[in-house]
Amino acid sequence: MKLKKEELLHFYRKMVEIRKFETKVVELFADGMIPGFVHSYIGEEAVAVGACSNLNDDDYITSTHRGHGHLIAKGGHMDKMMAELFGKETGYCKGKGGSMHIADVDLGILGANGIVGGGFPIAAGAGLSAKMRGTNQVAVCFFGDGASNQTTFHEGINLASIWDLPVVFVCENNMYGISLSQKEHQHIKDISDRATAYGIPGVTVDGNDVIAVYEAVKEAVKRARQGEGPTLIECKTYRHRGHFEGDPTVYRSEEEVEQWKKKDPIKRFRKKLLELGTVTEDELNSIDEEVDKMVEEAVEYAKKGKFPEPEKAVEDVYTDIVEEVRE
């Protein structure tokens, strides 16, 4: 497939956006500016960007606890994301959600998720709705290797398969669910093998190759939009950092981490672009600088925002009922 220069630059920019955003988040978390849990997406950027680059604004995604990358790739605004991570009223969820619950429903982002495996049936439901409403929308469900052992994996994919729902199940196989390696948590090597059980296509791609992910998801999205049902795509990748910030990562070796860092999706893609001669180093550097500025602005925006008034805690539970506040 011949990709246009602007598409290639878009991939690069989005991956750099995620990397720089996440690098900043790690730093701010260590400084105590971000409360709660943070799960870094560093190292897995090619999956979110390769997948979401096939989507329109009105297509849906369901995300995970490791969701910042999916949000940015789907067009989420960095400033509102950062403000949410700070717990500010100017954040995406007015400070109610935090890292694990950022959502932008207007952009089809049906939320990060604190429940591993929570997204499978929700994505199926978004696909069902698109089908019932007669639109051309698709839903992409991101999930991890660990999540593929939840009941919802089976139920969600099976349902999508029998109803030919426009859903693409995108597995980010980073080889671990917290401390447990894939070898220890399942007997298969390729999670895409499970597609057979649902009579749908299953593909495994190099998840650190943004073009490979892009092309696999492109095919799946095409199928979905044509009413041919779901696809299961497994992207082999790796998280550079611990499961959460603060994880001592005793369960994997330094060598393994170093091996995977050599396959860094952004470095690789940058090198490839330069080798192809499609873009110049200057073009890429200026993207880097633009993104640095974006991230700085996002941090400023987050810092400037106010914390929510405590009484706001009782709002947004229901559409119509607000219970009393504390005396």
Binding site: P308, A313, V314
Partner: peptide
């Protein structure tokens, strides 16, 4: 606790969960 899910932001969380003064 107030009849709401537990919110993320520290001032909200603190407000929702009962404390000594309550």
């Amino acid at each position: 606790a107030l009849n709401v899910p537990i919110p993320f932001s520290p001032p909200l969380e603190k407000y929702v969960v009962p404390d000594v003064k309550d």
